[in-house]
Design a protein around this nucleic acid. Structure first.
Lengths: 226, 226
DNA sequence: CAGGATCCGATTAGATACTG
DNA sequence: CAGTATCTAATCGGATCCTG
């Protein structure tokens, strides 16, 4: 049996959500990804086979629509799919408040950089190109150093030295940076406690926090803190 | 691997919700059940073994607390558990709007009567005892006839004739009655279309709809209807 | 880039029987 | 009433390789 055999709306909806990875595929779509490979970049640990399977299932349920376009297939949310936004928001708000313990495996720099790159506020960036280098002291050697190439018209992430002059260097740990990203830790506190080190021009270091729109859930009030 | 290895709050929460039956166990708890057997009555198709396992897992995650009381163990929601209410509401609202197709297996009279019995508005009932008999013409023979023994201080459901005078008889189909219960179909329309037949005193037939508080989701506006 | 096909190991759910 | 123990069958997920 695949369903719950209950007419209750929660049960009917649960038949969608109780599938492993489905909720995260929907999160990626709500975040705006429409291409197979973009979706996969937000879900690096999911096998491509399974992503393909889930997309087909979501299509059959009327939540996703697949369009064959001139430059390849794209996946779009239907009306039913778009209305999942409040559901995902409710789930995330609860998650950030109550499921906040992170273990080492959760601190994935690949996903972090992908998430950062799509939440950069381009309008807040300086004109021209700004290079930000990131070092995560606690990451595995090959995942330790990252470069963000920021410009109002394009944002790129590199895991190799692009050989350009770095404007700001962020020296931190994955643990601290993820905590800031999630909103568990305040940026200025993290800097004050030297859990985030900044080097570069005064001006840029002061402006930099405004370039990143933190995770949507960063602003959610936490239990037991005012 | 059991988790998603992502620090995203949606992913951390999804590690709770992507387990089969978990969402429905939580629904039962939010609906107020605290005893093992009561929980199971709302989940008749779930094996007791699995219910037990899910309760243990929810306890480990800090969502449920098990208390050993004088008359047996009870399961209560923690603060984290109580805060799942908005999540379940969002899920159900989406479900009732978009996952509304029901197949035969979803029309389970056992669950329907259990749900009805706990949503009776005792204050709206007449004084003394009122007996309502229900017939579902399309149900399997042994699940066709039900009796509700309604009194302001106690509500009982029987699947055998209690041998008492019936005050109101409802003659309908499971299909129609479930649609009304979910709010897909209006009570008065269903009566007018003779999908629900009522016999008994005029007064009681007119009062009867007020005794049942329909599913919480009945009031949710549906797509494509105003 | 965007998948499909296949195989195998891991996980899970359900049935059944039993306990205090 | 409130579960546990055990076994089996089904399902699922991932890895690998292949396609246009």
């Amino acid at each position: 049996m695949t369903g719950y055999a209950q007419f209750c709306p929660v049960a009917k909806a649960a038949e969608v959500f109780d599938q492993r990875w489905t909720l995260l595929v929907l999160r990626e779509m709500v975040a705006g990804s429409t291409r197979f490979n973009d979706l996969h970049r937000g879900l690096p640990r999911m096998s491509r086979t399974l992503l393909s399977r889930r997309l087909t299932q979501l299509e059959r349920k009327g939540i996703v629509e697949r369009d064959e376009t001139a430059d390849g297939p794209v996946y779009e949310l239907t009306d039913a799919g778009h209305e999942l936004l409040p559901v995902l928001v409710a789930i995330g708000e609860w998650g950030v408040r109550w499921m906040s313990s992170l273990d080492e495996a959760d601190l994935d720099p690949v996903f972090l950089l992908w998430d950062m790159h799509r939440r950069i506020d381009r309008e807040a960036l300086p004109d021209g190109q700004t290079i930000v280098a990131l070092t995560f002291r606690d990451a595995a050697p090959e995942l330790r150093r990252w470069w963000l190439l920021l410009a109002p018209d394009e944002v790129d992430v590199c895991d190799e030295d692009p050989g350009l002059d770095v404007d700001v260097h962020i020296d931190t740990t994955l643990e601290a940076f993820v905590r800031v990203w999630r909103g568990d830790l305040d940026w200025h506190d993290a800097v004050a406690q030297e859990r985030i080190g900044l080097s570069g021009s005064r001006l840029l270091c002061r402006r930099l926090p405004h370039w990143f729109r933190l995770s949507y859930f960063a602003q959610v009030p936490r239990p037991g803190r005012g």
